[in-house]
Nucleic acid binder design. Structure first.
Lengths: 194, 194
DNA sequence: ACTATTATAGACGACTGGTCTATTATCACT
DNA sequence: AGTGATAATAGACCAGTCGTCTATAATAGT
């Protein structure tokens, strides 16, 4: 890979700032200063701020997919261990950021769903893909008899992801990993426990 | 009393708009136009926008407490029924708003925790009080032998509230009550089921 | 070497944000 | 009623917003 394109730099810096401060609280000037790209270039690469925001969501989706596949994609481990690794992996990432920022997709779901239909559609489909990845994992666990047969993998995955996002939200307030640890324990002890 | 209402009107309209669009996306002009209060008056009643925002959080706290006590405060019903009523009550409110807006406290937790320490402290304590109300209810249920003895009411309440907030967040994207219904079912079938 | 295209540069405008000072209306009390 | 204090309003103010525009520089294709 050669050097990063200007467009990619804008997206990367924009993603970082939007993750930290939210979409509306982040100005184009902030982003362009951070990316050391002049304002005039921005409108060469993007139609407007919304168009740019949608590209940032794609960036988040890729980052989350990459991060998730480290744990959920490791088929040398049993499915429930993959799910535990998934949670532990993200917990470690959040800890490294001092429990700030939270989930970029979750943040945009909250902030933008009622403000912008295009955002809502896009974050919704990213969220659905995250749930599918977990559902796939649960399905494998069920095939091996590791979790109860009466659990619907799709529904259960959806619930677990929602719990997890709720825990992340709470984490942003208390600034420690207790909500994440609690979520993991409750899910494994009471939902996935045979 | 007349002076009180002007201030109260600003808070009420501000709370409505901030609930709908978020704190940063809501301008003072929007609020003051809606409240039919001239712009100059605002800084007579509030020190600045942050000071105003904190007052709006208090307003939300009161509204949520009032709404919660309808269900959780009705001691003629068994505790688990109170919790079910609590969920059903909020589900009905959300349905009436076409599943927009979500939880005003949850929204501000997401949006403001990393932007403003005073907001973080205040929404955090409101959130804690919500969890305590549920914990109290679970404790009653435990005393009656309605839920397993090994459940810690405080921790369990925290988990349930986080799940619920995660479900609300998801609701805002899918625009139906499925995440709320799923949350209720999973909590009652797998966490509180003896 | 000479156009076309791609990309950079940043001034500029129309508008909105929150904030503040000056001014007017209202009230309590002699 | 007249006076002083307080309640409330009016609107100026400027920094900052997104977005547009024209001018310039670098690169590619013939």
């Amino acid at each position: 890979m050669g050097k990063e394109t200007t467009r990619a730099t804008i997206i990367r810096e924009g993603a970082r700032l939007i993750h930290k401060k939210g979409f509306n609280a982040t100005g184009l000037s902030d982003i362009l200063t951070a990316a050391r790209v002049p304002k005039g270039s921005f409108y060469f690469y993007f139609k407007n701020k919304q168009d740019f925001g949608l590209a940032v969501i794609d960036h988040y989706a890729e980052a989350i997919a990459a991060m998730s596949s480290i744990s959920l994609g490791d088929n040398n481990r049993p499915p429930l261990q993959k799910l535990a690794d998934f949670m532990d992996g993200f917990t470690a990432v959040f800890a490294k950021m001092d429990f700030t920022c939270g989930c970029p997709i979750g943040n945009l779901m909250q902030e933008m769903s009622d403000l912008n239909e295009a955002f809502r559609d896009k974050v919704g489909s990213v969220y659905a893909r995250m749930a599918e990845a977990i559902a796939q994992c649960l399905s494998e666990a069920q095939d091996r008899g590791d979790i109860p047969v009466d659990l619907d993998p799709t529904q259960t995955a959806q619930f677990i992801l929602n719990c997890w996002e709720g825990a992340i939200m709470h984490m942003k307030v208390v600034k420690n990993d207790a909500p994440l640890a609690l979520c993991k324990r409750m899910v494994f002890d009471h939902i996935l426990n045979k």
